[in-house]
């Protein structure tokens, strides 16, 4: 793991639970960029400014999608769009700018994104879309950036109540969250593309979504078939869970 001292952390404010401040206490320099940094050009400029001031940017903390209960019926399109721009577009722009900087600097670096455990357990269509997009950004960027030694991981934040089937946290103490942020800001680059749960002092690693593991396999034959045809149908099923 890399030591946090001497590194520069770009935080897409507001600073989630003081995560940036916690890294600052460990010796990192912190640059907070506000919500006005929304376009890709804004994000490029923010990273360039931080590099000019500090020599490099080593860690990126992406924004936390806000809670929203906006429903699909009677949806306020303007409010919905503002949320997408403030979180989804901004996250993409900041991660793009950071990734380009790190690749040009020879690779290495850490990105921590944030989503909610309510992502697939919510009535809020904007909130659900924004959070799901963060999961996608984490997974996709981690695959692209792994060859460059850049780790991209997502902290899935638990709420005060049960969300996504997770047990209700027994404390709102954020010490575990801050420790997890610090860990992921220093983790080995081979640990990337993961979704980690954090609610109170509960920490978890999610199984990867849309992945088949230990499936029962069924085939319905619409008509009698010979052994060769049966083999052609069955053989690929041996690959289930392996691809």
């Amino acid at each position: 793991m890399q030591e946090p001292a001497g590194r520069t952390v770009l935080v897409a404010g507001p600073d989630v639970s003081g995560a940036g401040a916690a890294l600052q206490a460990l010796g990192s320099s912190i640059v907070i960029v506000g919500p006005e940094t929304s376009s890709f050009a804004d994000c490029d400029a923010a990273v360039a400014d931080a590099v000019a001031a500090h020599g490099s940017v080593d860690v990126l903390l992406l924004p936390v999608p806000p809670r929203s209960s906006a429903r699909i019926a009677q949806l306020d399109a303007g409010e919905w769009r503002a949320g997408i721009d403030a979180v989804t577009r901004r996250s993409t722009g900041l991660l793009r700018a950071f990734a380009r900087h790190r690749v040009s600097a020879g690779g290495g670096g850490h990105v921590v994104s944030f989503a909610s455990s309510a992502v697939f357990d919510s009535d809020g269509v904007g909130q659900a879309s924004m959070n799901a997009a963060v999961l996608s950004l984490t997974s996709g960027a981690s695959a692209t950036l792994a060859p460059h030694g850049i780790a991209v991981n997502c902290i899935v934040l638990g709420g005060p109540e049960r969300q996504g089937g997770m047990p209700r946290p027994d404390t709102d103490d954020d010490a575990a969250l801050l420790a997890l942020v610090a860990h992921l800001a220093s983790v080995e680059p081979s640990f990337t593309g993961r979704y980690l749960y954090c609610g109170g002092r509960d920490i978890g690693l999610y199984a990867m979504p849309l992945t088949i593991e230990q499936a029962h396999l069924l085939v319905r034959l619409p008509e009698p078939v010979g052994p060769d045809e049966l083999g052609a149908v069955l053989a690929p099923l041996a690959e289930v869970g392996q691809a």
């Binding site: 699909i72 919510s122 879309s129 924004m130 799901a132 997009a133 996608s136 950004l137």
Partner: peptide, 30 residues
């Protein structure tokens, strides 16, 4: 698309993942 949560195609995958979130929330509401 399965590419929503697997694919590296940033804009396409992000939108497809967001549709998955939208689906869940809209299903609950409606």
């Amino acid at each position: 698309s399965r590419g929503g949560l697997f694919g590296p195609q940033t804009a396409y995958s992000g939108a497809k993942a967001a549709i998955m979130g939208l689906t869940t929330a809209a299903a609950r509401e409606l």
